[in-house]
Amino acid sequence: MTSYVSPATGQKQLGLVIDLDTCVGCHACAVNCKEWNTGGHSAPLPDYAPYAADASGVWFNRIHSFEAGEGDDSRTVHFPKSCLHCAEPACVEVCPTGASYKREEDGIVLVNADTCIGCKLCSWACPYGAREFDEDAGVMKKCTLCIDRIYNDNLDEVDRVPACVSTCPASARHFGDLGDPNSTVSRLVAERGGFDLMPELGYKPINKYLPARAARKTAGCTGAPAALEPAGVDGAKGLLRWLDRALSR
């Protein structure tokens, strides 16, 4: 009944892989995203009350910080989140105008700002909070996966990646075809146990998250023993050990 067809296996599905093990929560990706996109395909990304109380604005990428677990064993996790370009994007399904769509050729979920009526329903349908309403223009906007960069002939080949990926100082963001099981990103996901957010809702996000590795704080974690063997240098006779050590300059 729906006009939206789920992607077939093996179909190109561009997306991001975000490494929670190395993300330091610096917000670089969020700001660089804003910077690129405010002059890009979805321009502008307006800011309201930018120099006053209650400032807010349109951002396609936001960095959360969580703590998981208790006490010394808790882990602080910095957690970037943008559109996950879901394989089953209800945001597209609910859209009454077709302004929201998922591109067949690469799986990117986009909004056509020229046909959007600003009903906000897609933002209700997105469990992840990846939709951004532009109050000023009255239309919905969202992460475009930098569609105006990744195929842009005016940029050098190496620069044809999303802005957030190219700027991340901690190399915590990876971009590629997650529909291809042999791509670098798919292999990374397989190796590191990449996971989906809220899998129970069945949106089948394309973007994956790599888990933070376990802390290494038990004896033997580096191959070293729990403590060093004393060499008998304690006490008065201790320094004798070093007395006739043959050394040279």
Partner: peptide, 20 residues
């Protein structure tokens, strides 16, 4: 293009190579 597309306008044509 489907019927609805012809009635309501089709999928957006995205300029993937704008001048930077």
């Amino acid at each position: 293009r489907t019927l609805t597309e012809r009635l309501f306008g089709g999928q957006e044509q995205v300029d993937t190579s704008p001048k930077v």
